[in-house]
């Protein structure tokens, strides 16, 4: 059984990121980059499935610049078998990422594509569903539990009002939510040890045609500064004055 895990390199999700003063981009100077946290959960899940079923082969793939090797190496250190770096300097939007990933899936023929529900930089929450549509595969988004057999996936997923369990026949796309697992910690020596695992670099198979582009980045409107109150009594009376209760 083959699992394909698309991962994205994103700016450290705990860093304070600002727009550049001229509005043309983001100021990420000096900030760390990481595997998108939801993709790290996807890698972890694939590895846990492999621990249960050693016949599983895990390929991680990313579309981006040469610097993404760092994130692929980390995924290999976590336990993925192979990595594919689709090198491009092009600006991508979700449809172009989904189109390229669909071409990769066409070639590698995975049984499951396990990926993040959203990238914490663009917060789009689009690629997994678009990819599933392009491949005409069933999808289960926001997974919090995954049971795989050779022909089906049983996925518990988070919904607006609670949870639901879906049964999908494979091949299928599953996107991860926060509570699927807690990714293992990989120290630097582990990453260096994984250097012997195969990492292939190649160019895009498809030609990106942008359907959207960002024309401006700016700071969000700020809220007026608040104040501290001295006691519960004061808090309740201010709230009453403002008509909150």
């Amino acid at each position: 059984m083959k699992i394909l895990v698309p991962i994205k390199r994103v700016v450290d999700p705990y860093a304070k990121v600002k727009a550049l003063a001229d509005g043309t981009g983001l100021d990420t100077a000096g900030l760390k980059f990481e595997i998108n946290p939801f993709d790290e959960i996807a890698v972890e899940e694939a590895v846990r499935q492999k621990e249960k079923n050693p016949a599983i082969e895990i390929t991680v793939v990313t579309i981006g610049g040469a610097e993404c090797e760092e994130q692929l190496r980390k995924a290999l250190a976590m336990g993925a078998d192979k990595a594919l770096l689709i090198e491009t300097a092009d600006v991508m939007d979700s449809p172009s990422v989904a189109t390229e990933l669909a071409a990769v899936a066409g070639e590698l023929a995975p049984d499951v594509i396990l990926m993040g529900k959203q990238a914490t930089d663009d917060d789009c929450n689009q690629v997994g569903q678009m990819l599933a549509a392009k491949l005409n595969w069933p999808q289960a988004t926001f997974a919090s539990k995954l049971d795989l057999t050779n022909s089906s996936a049983l996925v518990k997923r988070e919904t607006d009002s609670g949870e639901e369990t879906l049964e999908l026949s494979l091949p299928a796309v599953v996107t991860t939510d926060l509570r699927l697992n807690e990714p293992r910690y990989i120290a630097l020596p582990g990453i260096i040890k994984a250097r012997s695992k195969p990492l292939e670099r190649r160019a895009m198979l498809t030609q990106p045609k942008l359907l959207t582009r960002v024309t401006r980045y700016e700071a969000p409107p700020t809220r007026a500064a608040g104040r501290k109150v001295g006691s519960v009594d004061e808090l309740v009376s201010v709230l009453r004055e403002r008509g909150a209760f």
Partner: peptide
């Protein structure tokens, strides 16, 4: 925007080969 609309509409965008704006 909701979990359900993101689930369904992003798939619909994929079927349509359409642009999408989230949130």
């Amino acid at each position: 925007s909701s979990m359900r609309s993101k689930d369904v509409l992003a798939r619909l965008a994929g079927l349509l080969n359409a642009a999408m704006v989230t949130d």
